[in-house]
């Protein structure tokens, strides 16, 4: 295996995602992690729900289960319990994973099933045409929030850590190398590993909120990195010329990691 493209169902390419959508970049980072770990494609299953992110699994030559909206963690739980010999990775989106599927996600985390969940957060519902998502920043415009959403967004990593995920990390699509590194760690982790990947949606989130093309949104993403954002927030501007600069930041890296009994479906009573 010299090229991650060898993992693709090349006949299915090019994929359906829009120009500049970084979901493909994330898939590539994931495949790099698969390659680095030398995972057996026959023993690697990817489970996804509904949405743009979930479409990704159609293009990889593994065992791929395209489940219903939000339920991928449940499908994956069943699959993993049935096939403990397989590596099971879930690809979900912010709407899929945190709205309709939020319950499944937190419970899979609580159980500490040995799954790796990649949540591709593009702050909006892409597949259905740009509706507000549970991760849409307050004030951001969506087709169902034409004047800007009045709701507060989820911090997926805090949510999942609270839910008991034994590995929680956040990376950005603009950082494919770090993304791969973190995904290697997540896939190597025994137990429920959660990686939020900040992605972009130039077609809807970018367009509605004047954030530019995919390339520009990636740059915007890099600038949102916590250290950068904090440093920027600290600085002053030229006297008399006001700037409204977004100084909110987003931390990246592995936030939480613990060794904790992995749920295998065998009750502790029976194990005794």
């Amino acid at each position: 295996m010299t090229d991650v493209r060898d993992y693709l169902r090349e006949w299915a390419m090019p994929h359906v995602l829009c120009p500049g959508c970084a979901h493909g970049t994330i898939l590539r980072a994931f495949l790099e992690a698969v390659k680095r770990l030398e995972l057996d494609p026959d023993k690697l299953a990817m489970v996804a729900g509904i949405g743009c992110s979930s479409r990704l699994i159609g293009y990889v030559d593994f065992c791929t289960l395209h489940a219903t909206h939000g339920r991928a963690p449940a499908f994956a739980t069943g699959l993993k319990l049935a096939r403990p010999d397989m590596t099971v990775a879930v690809v979900t989106g912010d709407g899929d994973g945190l709205a309709i599927g939020g319950n499944h996600l937190i419970h899979a985390a609580r159980r500490n099933v040995d799954l790796t969940v990649l949540l591709l957060n593009n702050s909006i519902y892409g597949m259905t045409g740009g509706q507000a998502a549970p991760t849409s920043p307050a004030g951001s415009v969506a087709s169902t929030a034409p004047a800007g959403t009045a709701e507060a967004p989820f911090d997926a990593c805090k949510l999942l850590e609270g839910a008991g995920a034994s590995f929680v990390a956040r990376v950005m699509a603009v950082d494919p190398i770090m993304s791969t590194n973190v995904m290697v760690e997540a896939l190597s982790h025994r137990g429920f590993s959660f990686v939020e990947v900040i992605s972009d949606c130039p077609e809807y989130f970018g367009r509605y909120n004047a954030l530019g093309s995919g390339a520009e949104m990636l740059a915007w993403m890099a600038r949102k990195e916590a250290g950068v954002a904090a440093a920027l927030a600290n600085k002053r501007y030229v006297n008399h010329v006001p700037t409204a600069s977004d100084t909110s930041g987003l931390a990246t890296g592995v936030f939480h990691r613990e060794e904790r009994p992995v749920f295998t479906g065998l009750s502790t009573q029976a194990a005794r």
């Binding site: 289960l65 489940a67 339920r71 449940a74 739980t77 069943g78 499944h104």
Partner: peptide
């Protein structure tokens, strides 16, 4: 919902 989802997942796994 999750219950039948997990059942489907397990069945896909051969159980």
């Amino acid at each position: 919902i999750a219950s039948l989802g997990a059942v489907i997942g397990a069945s896909v796994g051969g159980m």
